[in-house]
Computed example of a mutant assay.
Amino acid sequence: MAIELQYSSSLNGASFLLFELKQVLRLKQLGLTNQEIRQKVKEQNQFQFNNQGRINRALPSVMRRAETIDDTLVSLMLEGSIDIAKIINLYAIMKTDLLFFEFMDEVTGEKLRNNDYLIEKKDINLFFTYKAEQSEKVASWSSSNIEKLKRAFMNVLFESTILRTRKGKELNRLIIDERIKNHLTNIGDARFIRAMGE
């Protein structure tokens, strides 16, 4: 099922959420419906958040990401290493967030493919300026929303280990498990591997 994605700033309230995605996938494996999962997450605080508002902001993104991960990837994510889980989570974020996918492909992935291991503020600023010129939606966002989004993008890079340190500029090449590469290639999603810098 292909979802027609539009630019969105939902990463502001969602970010990496690896632990939370794993919780949802485990509930899915138990056969719970999406409605039951939502209810259980909220009632039993499965995400271990300290306030309901944060759950309400994060849950829609986590549910969308869970929908993009097939059984093969679910098994790898829940039974594999933390590095494997991070890469599958990164894939799910790109698959559900068009702007972040384009950022990965056009900025981070491009740098890694060219053996350029430095991401600077100007790279991120240029990307957002270019997207605002291309899209009325991005152009309509407030500068504070865009600043938050830039931080959210960098946080995802750090959490997925593409960015070496939280405040740094140095990029790291991901080591992507062959099973993930082969599976994504077989299902027609090789562009996401490319966006990770392969």
Rank of each mutant, 00 (worst) to 15 (best):
I69W: 02
I69D: 07
D70I: 01
D71K: 01
V74P: 14
S75G: 15
L78D: 13
S81N: 07
I82D: 15
D83H: 00
D83K: 00
D83G: 09
I84N: 08
I84L: 01
I84E: 11
A85E: 03
K86E: 14
I88L: 05
N89F: 07
A92I: 02
A92W: 08
K95L: 10
K95D: 15
D97E: 14
D97I: 00
L98Y: 09
L99S: 11
L99E: 13
L99Q: 06
E102I: 00
E102A: 09
F103V: 02
M104D: 13
D105M: 02
E106L: 03
V107C: 08
T108Y: 03
K111C: 10
N114M: 14
N114W: 08
N115W: 08
D116W: 01
Y117D: 05
L118I: 14
I119H: 04
E120W: 09
E120V: 04
K122I: 14
K122H: 08
K122E: 14
I124P: 13
F127Y: 11
F128T: 00
Y130E: 15
K131D: 05
E133I: 02
E133W: 02
E133C: 04
Q134P: 11
S135A: 02
V138I: 11
V138F: 12
V138S: 02
A139Y: 05
A139I: 06
S140Q: 06
W141E: 09
W141F: 12
S142D: 10
S142Q: 04
S143F: 09
S143W: 07
N145K: 12
I146C: 07
I146L: 02
I146F: 07
E147A: 15
E147N: 13
K148R: 15
K148L: 10
L149Y: 09
A152I: 03
A152M: 04
A152C: 02
F153V: 01
M154H: 05
V156I: 07
F158A: 01
E159Q: 03
E159N: 04
E159M: 05
I162Q: 06
T165K: 08
T165F: 08
T165H: 15
R166C: 05
G168F: 04
G168N: 04
K169H: 11
E170K: 02
N172W: 10
N172H: 13
L174W: 01
I175E: 04
I175S: 12
I175Q: 06
I176V: 14
I176G: 03
D177G: 00
E178Y: 02
R179P: 00
R179G: 04
K181Y: 10
N182A: 04
H183S: 08
H183K: 13
H183D: 11
L184F: 06
L184N: 03
L184V: 01
L184H: 01
T185W: 12
N186C: 09
